[in-house]
Design a protein around this nucleic acid. Structure first.
Length: 296
DNA sequence: CGGGACGCCTGTGAGC
DNA sequence: TGCTCACAGGCGTCCC
């Protein structure tokens, strides 16, 4: 048996993306792009000539799943864009991405080896740092048009969407033969539950991750949905402290690590019943669960 | 069409 | 101590 890894990369989950949005919004909105520099290529090409972004003004930041949408309004002063056309940047932080903003007047550190996008505005410099480059920044004219529309097309409902009822959730997973954990991970029913949160939510709900989704009873589905929502909400509440350690190369932030009941705890006693936590691989991804507390 | 496997990347630490 | 190598993960894409 392998010893549990003490190292669990702090990846940007939905809560981190939301905290990023919240902290970035006041600084970025209304600021005007002066220039933009690209480092190494990310997941996809930007899809627009950098020069065309010059003079654009940031609109209100939005989040959809783990994507950030930064609307850009063409400045009327830019001759080529006088036709009030609009667009925006769709960003994903991938596995290791983070966004930083250095307000104008503050000391701007030189671009590091993993700073792949830098946007200089009249109010400061926005930097996307992403060592593994699973992230992306893509220009799109609209959320409703490609490429944005295609990227967002299969996303499920937001965890706090009022339309995400237990009834609807149960209905959605009813026809799914895949293991419930895979369905959560797929994100086409509910967005935001990554590998860690999926494991934790299933533990909360007392459900074996290998159980076929279609076999979940209505009450258990309701319980699971509640667990997913609770887990994500709790993480969001801790988001501030998580974000502080965001740039660290490894290790979940303290607050985050302390919360994990099963993730990364193979062989350690279940916090609830003492049974050693098990690890299995599902969809080529580590899955942790308590064989006693979580039932089929 | 659902579902499973793959590949993209690099830092990390276990093991030799 | 230095090197090699498996591993971590989101998600689009490909294939069955």
């Amino acid at each position: 048996m392998k010893t549990p890894r003490a190292n669990n990369a702090a990846m940007p989950e939905l809560p981190e993306v939301e905290v990023t949005r919240q902290t970035l919004a006041p600084a970025l909105e209304g600021s005007r792009i002066q220039s933009m520099e690209l480092g190494k290529p990310l997941r996809w090409p930007l899809g627009i000539d950098v020069a065309r972004l010059q003079g654009c003004v940031f609109g209100p930041l939005q989040r959809r799943g783990k994507y950030l949408w930064m609307p850009l309004l063409h400045d009327a002063l830019t001759p080529a864009a006088s036709a009030s056309s609009a667009g925006g940047l769709l960003m994903h932080l991938g596995m290791s991405g983070s966004l930083g903003f250095a307000p104008a007047g503050s000391l701007v550190v030189a671009a590091g080896p993993h700073d792949h996008v830098r946007i200089r505005t009249n109010s400061g410099v926005l930097t996307l740092t992403d060592p593994r480059r699973f992230g992306a920044v893509v220009w799109s004219e609209d959320l409703a048009t490609p490429p944005a529309s295609k990227l967002l097309a299969s996303l499920g409902r937001e965890p706090d969407d009022p339309a995400l009822t237990a009834e609807w959730f149960h209905e959605q997973i009813h026809g799914r033969r895949a293991p419930i954990k895979q369905v959560l991970l797929a994100g086409d029913v509910v967005v935001g539950a990554g590998n860690i949160y999926a494991c934790e939510a299933l533990f909360d709900a007392g459900i074996d991750p290998r159980l076929r989704a279609e076999r979940l009873s209505r009450p258990r589905a309701a319980r699971l949905l509640q667990a997913v929502q609770h887990t994500l909400a709790q993480a969001l509440a801790l988001g501030g402290s998580t974000l502080r350690d965001f740039r660290d190369a490894h290790g979940m932030s303290g607050a985050f690590q302390d919360q994990a009941r099963v993730y990364g705890r193979e062989g350690l006693p279940c916090t609830s019943c003492g049974t050693p936590i098990r690890r299995v691989v599902m969809g080529q991804r580590s899955t942790f669960y308590c064989p006693t507390c979580q039932r089929r």
